[in-house]
Amino acid sequence: MKLLGLALAAAFTLGAAPADAAPRWTVCAGTCSFAVPAGDYEIEALLTGQTGLDVEARRIALAPVDTRPGRYVHRSVTVEVRTPEGMPSGEDGPGTPGLQVRLTGPAPRPARIIVTPKPKAPRIFVISDSTASDWTFPPKNGWAQALPEFFRAGPSVRNYAQSGASTVSYLADPRYFARVRPMIRPGDTVLIQLAHNDKQTTEDDYRANLATLLDGVRAQGGAPVVVTPPVRHRFGADGKLTPLGLVVNNLGVDLPAVLRDVARQRKLPLLDLTARSQVLVEGLGEAASWPLYLTLAHDGVDDATHLSRYGAEQFAALVARAMRQARLPVARFLRP
């Protein structure tokens, strides 16, 4: 295995790529930057020790591997570079130009990394709210922020989830759907999960807004996928999640139920994150499920809606499993 690792290292150093691919490589120790323009890129990494990769706005690109000294593991993933790096509002700043790569894990070791442009990569767009957002600064994390780690190289997860967004504001604000829609190419997968902030939206308006989003995606040739929202950490005395926990809004509209019905009527794929996260959270129980969310002891705040890094990874795993079971075309790129 050590010889294999050395061979891989040599291949990363000496291997040539087509001239128009313009690959760039470096040995990264901690944080490194690649001066590349906006677009999709494949990252190939030769990892050792207990090392993973985050990119851009704390997106989890590769989960840490665990190897013995002198042993190497080859991993690859496709990522998007954009400005702003985080949420489309840019409220947390534009970020740093180019592609930022940070080593993660309990005992990270220097990693050899190659970055290659992939302008024709298939894309997975995420239209959602803060529960899925790319949060530039801790402690909050979104489940789509962790989704790239479940895919091998191929599709780029383009996360345009915006904190505070509802079906109303995502359509009304020119920074959101008006920006995302022209990017969508035929065959792109578009995950739509908007519900948490539709607290005062009537059922009729909610259905109409969803129809506008779905029709807009289809008009671009994209493949819309309906995703129900993750549950909140709101328990009743019976040990079950309350209606607020199950994302029933202030008008009594069961938003996940509406999403299920819209998907059924339109014959669209449905990823029922509400049902899956309910099973996970209720199965753990009120106390044991708190680490999925932000807690006073660990994060300085008790937050029953937003996710910890651990929670984001767990909920992203539920989404990835649902994508596989729904047999979405991009599911063929999921890691085993």
Rank of each mutant, 00 (worst) to 15 (best):
L318K: 03
G222Q: 09
W25D: 10
F137M: 05
V319N: 05
P64C: 03
S33N: 13
A304P: 08
A61S: 12
L246I: 00
V226C: 09
V279Q: 14
Q220N: 02
V281W: 03
A107Y: 01
A7F: 11
V77C: 14
I114H: 00
V225Y: 08
R123K: 15
Q162V: 13
W135V: 06
Q193D: 15
G142D: 08
D134N: 15
E286L: 02
T242C: 12
D205E: 12
E149R: 15
P94I: 00
A11L: 14
V168R: 12
P155T: 10
I43N: 09
E80Y: 02
G15W: 02
R82V: 08
A61L: 13
W290V: 11
Y293F: 15
V101M: 05
A132M: 13
I124V: 15
P69Y: 03
F315H: 11
L213W: 04
W25T: 06
A57R: 04
R332T: 14
L241A: 10
A45H: 02
T274D: 14
S33A: 12
T78R: 11
Y72V: 11
D302W: 08
H298Q: 15
V227C: 13
P256W: 01
H196S: 11
R276W: 00
A7I: 11
I60A: 12
L296M: 09
V55P: 09
R185V: 03
A172W: 00
V126N: 13
H233W: 15
G311S: 09
N197L: 06
V27L: 14
L246P: 08
V330Y: 10
Q193R: 09
A19F: 08
R335Y: 01
F151P: 04
P138I: 01
A7D: 06
A153K: 09
R75V: 11
L53I: 15
L213S: 11
A107L: 09
E282G: 07
I43V: 15
Q220A: 14
G49P: 12
R232I: 05
A331D: 10
P182E: 07
R260A: 07
R71P: 00
S169P: 07
M87W: 00
L8M: 13
L62Y: 02
T13W: 12
A61N: 12
V258W: 05
Y41V: 03
A288R: 15
G236M: 07
D198Q: 06
L194V: 08
E286V: 07
P84R: 03
D205G: 00
L259K: 01
L171P: 10
D92C: 02
G98W: 02
D303K: 10
V217S: 07
R207T: 03
A161S: 15
N159W: 04
V247E: 14
A121H: 06
D54W: 05
L271E: 10
K267H: 14
R179V: 13
P84S: 10
D198C: 04
V319H: 05
Y293V: 12
R218H: 03
K267I: 00
Q325A: 14
G216D: 10
R276S: 15
D198H: 04
G311M: 05
G300P: 13
G283D: 04
F125R: 10
S308H: 13
D238R: 01
D20G: 01
